[in-house]
């Protein structure tokens, strides 16, 4: 089982990550997730800045990937989160899972995103036509954790 975690300002290439995951032996399934900067309904989002806690973010993401590895039979986990200022439609986060079977890959991918949204020290600030606003945490994200026991 291999874990790759990166916190970076540079963009990532889904195809490159996917091709890396394909090289994992014994795996018949790959599930990937990409999170993007979403436009606001009134088109007023100019950009978004992602702040993080350097060092702790990498540790938290690695710990989440390790928890997923303990719960499911996985071949590889790639987890990339970008920081800095991003524009609408830009990529924020990538989760890629290679596993012997699809059920584990789907579940691990959702598990990792649910935990990332509640445990990784990252914060979004939106820059809009009406000013700058820190994004508030959603209770729905907190509730999402309950399904994992």
């Amino acid at each position: 089982m291999s874990i790759f975690v990166a916190v970076q300002s540079d963009d990532f290439c889904v195809a490159s990550e996917y091709n890396e995951l394909r090289r994992q032996s014994g795996c018949g399934a790959i599930v990937t997730f990409s999170g993007l900067v979403r436009e606001l309904s009134d088109n007023q989002l100019h950009s978004m800045t992602l702040e993080h806690y350097p060092g702790m973010t990498e540790q938290a993401l690695t710990a989440i990937a390790e928890q997923a590895q303990q719960r499911w039979q996985l071949g590889a986990v790639h987890l990339i989160h970008r920081v800095g200022t991003l524009k609408p439609h830009e990529q924020i986060v990538f989760v890629g899972i290679a596993s012997p079977h699809r059920a584990a890959a789907f579940a691990a991918c959702e598990f990792i995103m649910d935990y990332l949204k509640n445990r990784a020290p990252l914060w979004k600030k939106e820059h809009t036509s009406n000013g700058d606003y820190w994004v508030e945490a959603k209770t729905s994200d907190q509730h999402a954790l309950t399904r994992w026991g």
Partner: peptide, 10 residues
Amino acid sequence: LAFFPPVTGG
């Protein structure tokens, strides 16, 4: 020691 608000990454 660090203090921070609820996280909003992802």
